[in-house]
């Protein structure tokens, strides 16, 4: 084959080739993660935020038993019952989501992560702080299962834990891609 024939043949090649499957859903999922702050370019290391939040949460969860009554007046009881019912339903849904994500994503190998400015130990400590907050909240909820304040805090905590676990999974994946 002459050079000119090769050039002609190359020019005949289509520049555009449709992928055999739609790649948009995968892209869309990743954009979703980006928007939720799940990509790995963090200005503040993500594990510090839940650690601080967990500390605040612990103080709040402890404070409720000291400075705040568990019951409200009889006039508000009906309204409160409806709100509690709705909230508990939300908490139960969040629990299911969290447990499903937890089973899928944990345990992660902290030691395998290579993070700028982050040690695997720091990640483990942050996670343990979240777990301590969870233990305290669940203990309180066993005593006061319909308490609105505690249920709201559990929702917050589950949200933080989910974010933490998902970001760890992304970091692990990113680490895998680099190696």
């Amino acid at each position: 084959m002459k050079e000119s024939e090769l050039q002609s043949a190359i020019e005949e090649l289509p520049r555009s080739i449709r992928p055999q499957r739609d790649l948009w859903p995968g892209i869309s999922d990743r954009l979703e993660t980006v928007e939720k702050g799940g990509e790995v370019h963090y200005k503040t290391p993500f594990w510090r935020t839940p650690a601080m939040a967990a500390a605040v949460l612990l103080a709040l969860a402890g404070g409720i038993f000291i400075g705040r009554g568990m019951d409200t007046g009889p006039a508000d009881q009906t309204v409160q019952s409806v709100m509690e019912y709705a909230l508990i339903g939300t908490v139960e849904a969040a629990e299911r989501e969290y447990q499903a994500a937890f089973r899928e994503l944990v345990p992660l190998d902290y030691s395998g992560l290579r993070l700028e400015g982050a040690e695997p130990d720091a990640l483990r400590v942050s996670w343990e702080e979240l777990q301590q907050a969870e233990t305290s909240l669940l203990a309180a909820l066993r005593q006061y299962p319909t308490n609105t304040y505690l249920n709201e805090k559990l929702l917050d905590l589950r949200s933080q834990q989910l974010r933490f676990v998902k970001q760890l999974a992304m970091l692990e994946q990113n680490n895998w891609r680099k190696t």
Partner: peptide
């Protein structure tokens, strides 16, 4: 996506 896929492929 066709142009980009063709390039990447």
């Amino acid at each position: 996506c066709g142009r980009i896929y063709g390039l990447c492929w």
